[in-house]
Design a protein around this nucleic acid. Structure first.
Lengths: 156, 156
DNA sequence: GCTGTTTAGGTGTCCGTGCAACGTTCTAAG
DNA sequence: CTTAGAACGTTGCACGGACACCTAAACAGC
C-alpha cells in the first residue's frame, strides 16, 4: 500500500473499484458462457438482437446501433455480418439517406432472441440481482444514473 | 421474486444491469486510453504490475497471478512475454517446484508502475469515485462484497 | 522402483475487436 | 454548379485473448 498515497485514494476506494471490475467480469463471463452453450449466442450478439427488438420497426441505423451496444462501428459491421449470415438480421438500405443502412431484426432473429431471453434474465438474476436486497438495487440505480450522466459530456 | 417467471424482470432491474455494463465499460475504456497514451501501458499490464508490487518479494506464481488479474493462463503467458521483453518483469524458476515459475517485478517495472499510478488513480477518481457521495461508495462496497462472495462457490 | 493421474506452464490456432484508411454520399459555402 | 468538408459504413491490418493440446514435473498407489 506504500504505492498508493492516502491523499490520492484510500485503500477502501481502490478496493471498491477492483471489486467492481471483478464482479462485472464474473457476471459477464457467466452470462456469456450460458448464452453460448444454450443458444450459441455471444453476449454482444444478444445485445444487438435485443436493441433491435426494442427499436421501432425492429430496425436501427448501424451507427446508432454501434453506440448502443458499446461497439466500434467496424466491430459492429463484422458482428452484423455474422448475424446476417445466420439469418437473424438483415441489412436494408435507408430511403432518406443513401449512405445509411438499417440493421433489421428478422423473424428468426426475434425467435432466437425469445429463446435466449430466459437464459439471459435467469443469469442476471442469479449472478446479480438475487444477491442484492431490493433497496440495494434501487441504490445502485441511483448511483449508476450519476455515472451515466457523464456519458453525454464525455462523448460529443 | 421467485414467484415471478424468469422472463419477468422489472424494467428497472434490467435497466440497472445495462447501466452497470455501460458504466463499467466507459470507465474501463477511459482508464485504458489514458494509461496507454501517457505511459504506453495496457490496463491488463498495469494490473499485473500492481499485483506483483503488492505481493511479497514482488513475485507471484504464474497460475496465481492469472487468477488475480482475471486472465486465462495462456493469456497471462503472452502478457508476461511482452512485459519481460520490455524489461518490466522477469521470470524466475521456483526452487521448491521445478514446474513453477515466478513472475518478478523488476526495478524498471516498479518505476513504470509508479509513474503510471497517478494517472490510474486520477482516472478512477474522475470517472467513478468523484461522482458518488462517500456514503455511496461504502454502499457499493457492501454490495460488491456480496457479489464477490459467490466467487468462491463459483470457481473452486 | 514403476505407472497412471494431476498440476504448472507454454504453444498453435482461431476469433473478435479497435484503429486507420478508403469510397461513397450528403451538406454547406462560394 | 462547384467544391470542400463532414458523415456513414466497410475493409486491411495487427493485436490481445481464449480454447485445446502439449511437455515436464510432482504426486498417488501399488
Amino acid at each position: 500500500m506504500t504505492l498508493l498515497h492516502d491523499e490520492s485514494l484510500t485503500a477502501e476506494e481502490l478496493t471498491v473499484w477492483r471489486m467492481l471490475q471483478r464482479a462485472q467480469m464474473r457476471v459477464t463471463r457467466h452470462l456469456e458462457a450460458e448464452l453460448f452453450v444454450a443458444h450459441d449466442l455471444a453476449l454482444a450478439s444478444y445485445d444487438v438482437l435485443l436493441q433491435l427488438a426494442e427499436a421501432p420497426e425492429r430496425r436501427l441505423r448501424m451507427n446508432d446501433l454501434a453506440g448502443r451496444v458499446l461497439l466500434s462501428r467496424s466491430g459492429l459491421t463484422r458482428l452484423i455480418d455474422r448475424l446476417q449470415r445466420d439469418g437473424l438480421v438483415v441489412r436494408e438500405a435507408c430511403a432518406s439517406d443513401a449512405r445509411g443502412l438499417y440493421a433489421v431484426l428478422t423473424d428468426p432473429g426475434a425467435a432466437r432472441l425469445a429463446q435466449a431471453t430466459p437464459t439471459y434474465l435467469r443469469g442476471i438474476r442469479s449472478q446479480f440481482l438475487d444477491l442484492l436486497a431490493p433497496g440495494e438495487i434501487e441504490q445502485v440505480r441511483v448511483m449508476l444514473a450519476k455515472l451515466a450522466a457523464l456519458d453525454l459530456t464525455d462523448a460529443p
